[in-house]
Amino acid sequence: MRDFIFIIGASGIGKTTLAKKLYEHYKGAYVEMSMIPEFGVPEGVDEGLFEEQVCWESSVTQVKKFWELGIRNIVALDFDDLRTRDIPEVFKVFNYITIKLVCSDYRQNYEQMKNRGNGLIDFELLEKMSQKINARKCLVNEFELDIAGKTVEQVFIEALEIIEHKEIKMEYDYVKPKKELFYSWVFSNGLR
């Protein structure tokens, strides 16, 4: 049993599909950063940065509240990749695991995104996002799962294997990696 299961990866790679299957399996809780209710943005602030910050902080508060209420195997996803580097800091005292979905066959990710019917359709951006996420080293308690050539069921079984059998660190020193190593759909300061 894990306190938190974080799913990260490029758009269209199957994060939501995997997260929903994990939620059905574990019966914990399911939180997507995009589930935060609508809210107004104060005048004079960067709308994108403010929205991302509110969604991130609200998601963190929500998953921690579920934990306080005794719920475990809380599946959380859809964070900006740059926020991934905050997870080892914010959740240090918890039994958490992060699964980084990657696809070594970009064409597969491209086709999945093209056939999705909604969401991101900027394929140049998708390629940059995939390259950046795939290239960075795994963080503390983060494990990579390559979906290339695999069915949804195969990815699910591999994810269960990672969640249930990989050893994680509960005590560690953590130095946040440089933000330039991460993809960000929000921050426009060269992270794309």
Results as ranks from 00 to 15, higher is better:
Arg85Leu: 14
Glu164Trp: 01
Arg2Gln: 02
Lys179Met: 10
Cys138Asp: 14
Asp3Met: 02
Leu120Asp: 06
Glu24Met: 07
Phe123Arg: 01
Glu171Arg: 05
Lys114Gly: 04
Ile163His: 12
Phe156Ala: 07
Phe187Thr: 12
Glu153Asn: 10
Cys55Trp: 09
Lys21Glu: 14
Asp46Ile: 02
Leu82Asn: 03
Asp122Ala: 01
Glu153Gln: 11
Gly12Phe: 01
Arg83Ile: 06
Val75Gln: 11
Ile74Gln: 10
Ile133Ala: 04
Ala19Ser: 15
Thr16Asp: 09
Asn134Gly: 09
Ala29Phe: 13
Glu89Met: 15
Glu158Asp: 15
Phe187His: 14
Asn189Leu: 08
Trp185His: 06
Gly9Gln: 00
Val60His: 04
Asp173Arg: 02
Ile97Pro: 09
Ala76Tyr: 13
Gly12Trp: 00
Glu24Tyr: 06
Val31Arg: 08
Gly9Tyr: 00
Leu139Pro: 11
Gln108Ala: 08
Ile5Val: 12
Pro88Gly: 08
Phe187Cys: 10
Gly190Arg: 10
Leu101Glu: 01
Lys65Val: 05
Ile36Glu: 08
Ser104Asp: 08
Asn95Val: 01
Asn73Cys: 13
Asp3His: 07
Asp80Asn: 10
Met35Tyr: 11
Leu18His: 05
Val155Lys: 00
Leu77Gly: 02
Val60Cys: 09
Glu180Thr: 08
Phe123His: 08
Thr151Met: 10
Val63Asn: 05
Ile157Asp: 12
Val152Asp: 08
Thr61Met: 09
Val93Trp: 01
Ala19Asn: 03
Val45Gly: 04
Val140Ala: 11
Thr84Val: 09
Met170Ala: 03
Gly117Ser: 12
Asn134Phe: 13
Phe6Cys: 03
Ile97Lys: 09
Val75Gly: 09
Ala10Glu: 00
Leu82Thr: 11
Pro37Val: 02
Ile163Met: 09
Phe6Thr: 05
Ile133Phe: 04
Cys138Met: 08
Val90Pro: 02
Ala159Gln: 03
His165Gln: 14
Ala29Ser: 15
Leu22Ser: 07
Thr16Leu: 07
Asn134Cys: 08
Ala10Trp: 00
Thr17Arg: 04
Glu68Thr: 14
Asp46Ser: 12
Glu161Pro: 00
Ser59Trp: 05
Gly12His: 01
Ile147Met: 01
Val175Ser: 12
Ile97Thr: 13
Leu77Met: 10
Ile87His: 07
Ile162Ser: 03
Lys132Trp: 03
Gly190Thr: 02
Asn95Ala: 02
Arg116Thr: 11
Tyr174Pro: 08
Asp146Tyr: 03
Tyr26Val: 10
Glu124Trp: 13
Val93Ser: 13
Lys21Asp: 09
Lys15Arg: 13
Ile36Gln: 06
Ile99Tyr: 05
Gln154Tyr: 00
Phe94Trp: 11
Met33Ser: 11
Val41Pro: 09
Glu68Gln: 14
Asp81Gly: 07
Glu43Asp: 14
Asp46Cys: 09
Phe91Glu: 06
Tyr30His: 14
Gln62Asp: 06
Glu57Gly: 00
Asn109Cys: 12
Val102Met: 02
Phe94His: 13
Lys137Thr: 01
Leu160Lys: 11
Asn109Leu: 15
Leu101Lys: 03
Ser58Pro: 07
Glu142Pro: 06
Arg116Asp: 12
Glu171Ser: 07
Arg107His: 11
Phe6Leu: 06
Val41Lys: 14
Leu18Lys: 06
Val75Glu: 09
Glu68Ser: 15
Ile5Phe: 06
Gly44Tyr: 14
Phe6Tyr: 07
Arg116Glu: 12
Ile8Thr: 14
Asp173His: 04
